[in-house]
Amino acid sequence: MALSNKTKAVLLGPLNKNNPIIVQVLGICSALAVTSKLEPALVMAIAVTIVTAFSNVIISMLRNTIPNRIRIIVQLVVVATLVTLVSEVLKAFAYDVNKQLSVFVGLIVTNCILMGRLEAFALGNGPWPSFLDGIGNGLGYGWILVVIGFVRELLGSGTLLGYPIIPKSFYEAGYQNNGLMMLAPMALLLIGVIIWIHRSQNKELQETA
């Protein structure tokens, strides 16, 4: 499937120069909440990608029919319905995953990335580019979540995906899991560090003083 340069930019932009978390600064709440372990971070990333992509498509297909006065409400209804459907399907066919994510699936509705992309992109573009934009933003969100989840689980619990990584000998020598990593503010600091590294690599993103 050949993508034109413009469409490629739509898909790949959010992975780097237009990343939802580190550039658009959206979706921070869930980036803090689900990343204390790697597995929920992964599942959340997939769920957000799916919901963003499909809500983008639906709103894009409806964009010429939505009355301007209720457009935010319509967007909200679409997102909430999709999230509820995802939640119901998870409960029926992937019960263990649903138990892992518990309340956080419902909180996808409050994830600013979704409304942000609907307003900024889906209302003004066709269904296929909107779908790619949704996938791109979901993946951009996802890789940040995976990085933070990786660091927090490794340093905070000494495990990855539940498997112990830090050898017992380290613990016996006096090493202790970093309890601070298990708390949300640490995730925020980690995002700050990632933004720092990212901006130093992409000078054009640095805000002028």
Binding site: P67, V74, E88, V89
Partner: peptide, 27 residues
Amino acid sequence: TILYASIMVIIVAVALAFTHQSLSEQQ
């Protein structure tokens, strides 16, 4: 606007009720 909102709500309500109904046994 009112018609649009009403129809949207009805479609969503039917879709969610139907989904829940068909999945509740499995759940």
